[in-house]
Simulated scan of single mutants.
Amino acid sequence: MAVYSTDHSTSVLQTHNWRTASNSTAYLLPYITSTSKILDIGCGPGSISVDFARRANKGHVTGIEYVPDPLGQARELASSQGITNIEFKVGDIHSLDFPDNTFDIVHVHQVLQHIADPVKALQEMRRVVKPGGIVAARESATMTWYPDNKGIELWLKLTTHVGKAKGGNPHPGRMIHVWAGKAGFERAKIKKSTGSWCFSDPVERAYWGGSMGARARSSGFAKTVTEEGFASEQELAEISNGWKEFVDAEDAWFGLLNGEILCWK
């Protein structure tokens, strides 16, 4: 039931590796204690998971991915930083292989948009979190940029279309609290917030625009959209060129607003 439209190629993992607990989970950090037992679903290369384990140094973190591809890199990251209270394994968000009431915190970041049944996933997350524990989710909602850029416009249109066609729910941050309610969380126990990313200085533009441009040139996404007729090689080149223009424009910036929820069981 995963509908992820790309893979874990170098350009994709470059984006995921940039994510840390500080820049991607600030809304959750006040609730992590030294003894927290945490499940990080969709952990990718482990950059957020390892940060969680560092904060919960007397607790434990389990990171899961639906495929094994990025988990070797996640284990290497933990080992290189001397983090031992962590493990990584393959798992399915729709059918979590853990007993009821196992974790203090269950976390997802930019995951619900890539699966076919986010309500079922949140029900599973609710099942495995302890009474009084927290289910946390953060998903993209809206994007904006300057200056106008035809390549980036095409990128957003294409990625949104492909995500929907594959059965996903692109950029659902504005409504994840509604899914949580359908999954069984009481409205009074759902805390809503927003968080944002902004890429504007030369280093940030090079990171964000460079990785997005590389995805358009060579990644599972590029292969999927050309082989299945969503876009032509020429259109992907236009997208890649658009991201290069963004990187090179001194006044350029890209902003992304995320919706966030904390749900207490």
Rank of each mutant, 00 (worst) to 15 (best):
I83M: 13
H94W: 09
L71K: 03
A74T: 02
I86Y: 06
D104R: 06
A116S: 15
S80M: 12
T84D: 13
S80D: 10
F103E: 01
A53R: 03
C43V: 10
G42S: 10
S95E: 13
A116W: 12
Q113S: 15
G44P: 03
F103H: 05
F88Q: 08
G42N: 07
V90P: 07
G44Y: 07
I105E: 00
A56H: 08
I41K: 02
K58W: 10
E76V: 13
P68E: 12
G59F: 01
P45I: 08
D97T: 13
S79N: 10
R55C: 12
E76H: 12
V106T: 04
V111L: 13
K58I: 09
R55D: 11
L71V: 07
A53H: 11
D97Y: 09
P99H: 07
G72R: 08
Y66E: 05
T62Q: 14
V67D: 10
E87R: 12
T102P: 06
I83Y: 07
G63T: 00
P70C: 09
L77I: 08
V50N: 03
T84M: 11
I86E: 02
G46L: 01
V67R: 11
V67N: 12
V106E: 03
K58V: 07
D69F: 09
I86H: 02
F88I: 05
G91V: 04
V111G: 09
K89Q: 10
P99N: 05
I48S: 02
S49C: 02
V67K: 13
R55E: 14
G59N: 06
K89H: 05
E65G: 06
R55V: 15
I105R: 05
I83E: 08
